[in-house]
């Protein structure tokens, strides 16, 4: 996959209006492209997640799934002297500062963190009561102390905390790990709605095969340090 191929793909997904003959304005898409990206001990990865689509990533514990997500979110550096690149809508990660990139490419860790006493203090934008209820959360929870929340409530609130900022890409690290089946379905529905409404690209780490079937359009797994496409068994680590 060449850089030109990536840009062509990105342009092909433009849903905006042409501003007249001769202009080359293309609205930014949310396609995520990884080109020979090295994360931790994994072999270089090259793959794309189109806007509005969800890629499910599976693999044994410790295989490097979280590390890969963190490198994509620019929370960890990829290997030194690595030639890998990441593109959002055809724009190189390096064109953004770290915080600017992370506002667009949002990483949700498996275990949520809370640092103020009150829930509301963590939110830059307050979620609407409808958003709270769609996850089975009472809107009053926002006024409560964090210490009174259950782990399931914390996990769902952490997801909302991320979504209210309207990121263009979601990197979800086992977002339903400690939720009951009803809350799990609610989360899956909310993310599917968000994905379609904002045409966001999603990478979803999950161990649950059934969930993978419900939420994903593409399935990848990590086998012996290589990210493999489950569809046809081909590895996504070719050198070009």
């Amino acid at each position: 996959m060449t850089l030109q191929h990536i840009r062509d793909n990105a342009n092909a997904q433009v849903t905006g209006i042409n501003h007249g003959a001769g202009s080359d304005v293309s609205l930014p898409t949310n396609q995520l492209d990884l080109v020979k990206l090295q994360a931790g001990d994994l072999a270089p990865v090259t793959l794309s997640v189109a806007a509005g689509e969800c890629l499910v990533l599976a693999g044994a514990s410790g295989s490097g799934k979280s590390r890969l997500l963190r490198v994509i979110a620019d929370l960890d550096a990829s290997m030194e002297n690595a030639a890998g690149q990441i593109f959002l809508g055809g724009v190189d990660l390096l064109h953004y500062s770290g915080p600017e990139w992370r506002r667009r490419v949002a990483y949700l860790a498996a275990e949520s963190q809370w640092w103020f006493d009150d829930v509301a203090a963590h939110f830059s934008i307050m979620p609407t009561p409808e958003q709270m209820q769609s996850l089975g959360l009472k809107p009053e929870l926002l006024q409560q102390a964090v210490s009174r929340l259950s782990s399931g409530e914390r996990q769902r609130l952490a997801l909302l905390r991320l979504l209210v900022q309207q990121p263009r890409v979601l990197l979800l690290d086992e977002p339903t790990a400690s939720l009951d089946p009803e809350a799990t379905r609610a989360v899956e529905q909310l993310i599917a709605d968000y994905r379609q409404q904002h045409q966001a690209a999603v990478i979803w780490v999950s161990h649950d095969v059934n969930q993978a079937g419900r939420v994903g359009q593409h399935y990848f797994y990590i086998n012996q340090g290589r990210v493999c496409d489950q569809g046809d068994g081909s590895t996504r680590t070719e050198d070009e």
Binding site: G98, P99, R102, A106, W115, S124, L162
Partner: peptide
């Protein structure tokens, strides 16, 4: 890192 991940500088 959770705060960085939310886009804080």
């Amino acid at each position: 890192e959770a705060r960085l991940a939310l886009g804080q500088d």
